[in-house]
């Protein structure tokens, strides 16, 4: 089953067109990466799915169903949870409250606050701390934990390795692989190829708002990679 599909999407911020004819498709259980340098429109793909960037042409479908008007909550309710760029831990809320917020969609499944604490025991020790007081790596865990609280079919992560030490990125790779193994599809948006090649099986290359190449990660040549991402 297709969990998320963008078909020939043009997306805009106001009158500025950012995405040109973008088509992306992720099926259940897949591990897919979108690669591209800074400013090519990676986050805009996420924003189009959240109703932040406006789609003037093409179609976005969640769980095989085309959506005509996308609101901020539409994707979440369709089983697509986003770990946004910069993590967006909500200020003024504790670690636990940030997690509870993630459960707002009320989708039942294996993930509860207890199973999230089993996955990230360090969060359990800090339940009452302000979420924003955590270190970068811990905030990333909190953001992933928050997304898991929605029991998503698809987890979208926008540059999760940004600003993290290499050893933390290793841990992140393991976590994402485990999640994928347990059946959650993963859409990993990254410039960090080190993380991508440990997690994804398929890729899309984005350049200047357009998909320039797609295929299996195993077949991605070094030259193409160097041309489109800093390695």
């Amino acid at each position: 089953m297709t969990l998320l599909s963008l078909r020939n999407v043009d997306a805009y911020y106001g009158r500025a067109q950012i995405l040109h004819d973008v088509s992306v498709e992720i099926a259940a259980g897949e591990r897919v990466a979108i690669l591209g340098r800074n400013g090519v429109g990676k986050t805009t793909i996420v924003n189009a799915c959240l109703g932040v960037a406006s789609v003037h042409r093409g179609q976005i479908a969640f769980g095989g169903r085309a959506v005509s008007t996308i609101r901020h909550f539409t994707a979440a309710r369709a089983g697509i949870a986003v770990v946004p760029q910069g993590r967006r831990i909500v200020p003024g809320l504790t670690v636990k409250e940030n997690l509870l917020l993630g459960g707002a969609v009320n989708r039942k499944g294996a993930w509860t606050i207890d199973t999230v604490f089993e996955l990230f025991p360090m969060l359990r020790e800090r339940t009452e701390m302000a979420g924003t007081a955590l270190s970068g790596g811990q905030q990333q865990m909190l953001a992933i934990g928050r997304a898991l609280m929605a029991n998503p079919d698809l987890l979208v992560l926008d540059e999760p390795s940004e600003g993290l030490a290499p050893v933390i990125v290793d841990g992140l790779a393991d976590t994402l692989r485990d999640l994928a193994a347990s059946g959650t599809a993963i859409l990993l948006i990254e410039q960090n190829f080190g993380l991508v090649h440990r997690v994804a099986e398929r890729y899309y290359l984005l350049s200047k708002g357009a998909i320039v190449e797609t295929g299996w990660l195993a077949g991605l040549s070094m030259e193409t990679l160097k041309k489109h991402v800093a390695v």
Binding site: L50, F73, P84, R88, P91, L93, E97, A104, V105, N106
Partner: peptide, 22 residues
């Protein structure tokens, strides 16, 4: 109440979690 507090500081992130902030 939690959604209200969250939405008053970050409506987009709150909405992304499935809350109809409008």
């Amino acid at each position: 109440g939690l959604y209200v507090r969250a939405s008053s500081v970050d409506p987009l992130t709150t909405g992304m979690q499935g809350v109809d902030t409008e």
